[in-house]
Design a protein around this nucleic acid. Structure first.
Lengths: 249, 249
DNA sequence: TTCAAAACATGACATTTGTCATGTTTTCTT
DNA sequence: AAGAAAACATGACAAATGTCATGTTTTGAA
């Protein structure tokens, strides 16, 4: 997933009012939504997209906050979390570069965020006031179609996740998680795929709906069986095939 | 949720080629997607919507089938199910009158259905070939916006479901299900809300990701505590408040 | 490099849930 | 109304997972 700047913008002098100070609007070649537009419409959207940066200990927004922006992940990983009244919490989705968020209905009227968005480390996101975003969609049916396509995929993903939570054991869910992470953000190394995102046992537990202890024990077993190695800072998925088999036993 | 016919169509002579034989195209006042259109566009959509009927033992479509239509539930309830390789299955969503399905991306290119749609009893659905549907969306940005809104809500619903599966115990999940069903399809009676949809313990188990036995035991407890009464044919939710409290302990 | 904090690990035990077997009640069909 | 099938019920036990306590290793900041 390339992260170069849009050549069109390379040395454009930006004067948009709500941009991050001194930063050129950056753009991805790999965000279909941006590539659908051309000409004035494209320029207009680029003008209204601004970049924001966050650190690990900040929140992009929290459950219950009013929805102001539509977002695109530019760099880094963002997790979407929800908590229960008892204080337990779960991670619904790990957003990677190119992912859209808040592209949906919750943002339509005066709605509030149904979950919290928190960076996994340093991240940068592109964002746009929701009114401009909706105006853009109304002017560009193809862009709206792209958002429908994206939301449809997210819905199927969420339903697949619900299925896994409903039917699979903790070890299968963890295996599925490792496979998914390796395929989405794994960097090929001598003995397997190193995960680009730092993932603690706690993070994994939150992603598959178990406790940290259970995740530790299961990953421990996986290590003994040479399916994975390492720890959060340098987690390596060693045997994708066997993990896949375990996930869908 | 009123189910009257659209007065505009009351005695129109229909000659559309792909309609169900001898049946007038029926329309809902309560489907926003249909009310957004007007004039020729509305008429055009009505002309292309046809009605189909199914019985309990049939499938509307199955996991893996090619996607041909966009659908709207007209009458009855439809469940969306997914199965695991081991043969276990879960119900992801109960679609009620007014719900759209396959309004999403899976239907875009040559994609296949990610799950199965099965009637809970006699149902009728309105449907439209996906090409016509997409053309309609491209011509009507407001309709596309409505689909985005609908998909956004469905996504949040699915994520909420994943959260509940990840964090709550079986009894809390069942309580949440009963509250939801009572609020969405409950008919007020002397001692509570009677569910309009026939729901066996098995159905409930599939909806909350447990086994039938566990569901039976828990509902048994609920009966002893006067939270519910009756069986599939006549299930009554008696104490919504206490069920709600249990669901979000 | 050192030290505190975070992450990882493990044991013992409790709780929840699943599994299988068997029997009763309700519902549906004829 | 009768009989078959589906739904509901319950017990005994097994397996999976959670909880709590305690100790070790790794990581990151001074």
């Amino acid at each position: 997933m390339a992260l170069e700047r849009d050549p069109l913008l390379k040395r454009r002098d930006r004067s948009s009012s709500n941009r991050t100070c001194g930063v050129r609007t950056p753009v991805f070649p790999d965000v279909p939504l941006l590539n659908i537009l051309s000409g004035t419409d494209r320029q207009r959207m680029l003008d209204e997209l601004t970049e924001a940066h966050y650190e690990k200990d900040q929140y992009i927004f929290r459950e219950g906050d009013p929805t102001e922006y539509f977002h695109i992940v530019k760099e880094g990983a963002v997790k979407c979390i929800k908590s229960s009244p008892e204080g337990k919490q779960c991670t619904l989705k790990m957003l990677m570069p190119g992912d859209l968020f808040c592209c949906d209905a919750a943002a339509f009227d005066g709605a509030r965020h149904p979950g919290t968005a928190k960076p996994m480390g340093k991240v940068s996101v592109l964002r746009m006031r929701k009114q401009s975003y909706f105006d853009m969609l109304r002017r560009n049916p193809e862009a709206a179609m792209e958002v429908i396509r994206y939301l449809g995929n997210r819905l199927h993903e969420a339903q697949e996740k619900a299925k896994v939570l409903a039917l699979d054991r903790a070890d299968q869910r963890l295996a599925a998680l490792l496979v998914d992470m390796a395929e989405r953000s794994g960097i090929k190394e001598a003995h397997g795929f190193r995960l680009a995102v730092r993932l603690t046992r706690q993070d994994m537990a939150d992603m598959v709906g178990t406790t940290t202890e259970t995740a530790i024990r299961i990953i421990g077993r996986f290590k003994r069986d040479h399916l994975v190695s390492g720890t959060a800072n340098r987690l390596i998925v060693r045997d994708l095939a066997r993990l896949k088999a375990l996930a869908s036993t």
